[in-house]
Design a protein around this nucleic acid. Structure first.
Length: 141
DNA sequence: GCCAACGTTGGC
DNA sequence: GCCAACGTTGGC
């Protein structure tokens, strides 16, 4: 299984909005960048993705899953190459992981989120995935 | 609201 | 095919 990270401005479409779609899921459309599009096309059903709030949230808030692999973006002209995927919400991170924590963490210095902040659909390595899941786990007392 | 970083466009 | 100009994204 592969891991990804998808970004959204919470003002446009938030984690709560994704949760509200329940099992129906949400078409991830509107991607207009070829690198991001290529990542969408590489996704398989069951792949997991961190849901990141950009601009006003600046943290990873939850885990989503690919429900439907890439298909032509319904919001784009029919002759265009743009693609969409469908995602469903799996679970929130008990403790959201802020960008500034990610930036400070040497284990995450190579993350695409750090290296190429503007890419809206990006791959995440197994190591990065596991590490962020730990950071997002409930705090033990 | 500002500006840096990045991608895209278009003139040459 | 290069590169300057421009538009957009996203962190601060």
């Amino acid at each position: 299984m592969a891991y990804w990270l998808i970004k959204s401005e919470p003002d446009e479409f938030s984690w709560d909005d994704l949760v509200a779609t329940k099992a129906r899921g949400e078409p991830w459309s509107g991607v207009r960048n070829h690198q991001a599009k290529n990542n969408l096309m590489a996704m398989k059903v069951g792949d997991r993705a961190f849901f990141y709030h950009s601009k006003t949230g600046l943290e990873i808030v939850g885990i989503a899953e690919v429900k439907r692999t890439a298909y032509p973006d319904p919001m784009a002209p029919s002759s265009s190459p743009w693609m969409a995927c469908d995602f469903i919400a799996i679970e929130p991170l008990p403790s959201p992981v802020p960008l500034k924590v990610i930036k400070k963490d040497p284990a995450l210095a190579e993350m695409v989120l750090v290296k190429n902040a503007r890419l809206s659909v990006q791959p995440v390595t197994d190591e990065e995935w596991a590490h962020i899941c730990e950071l997002g786990a409930p705090t033990e007392t």
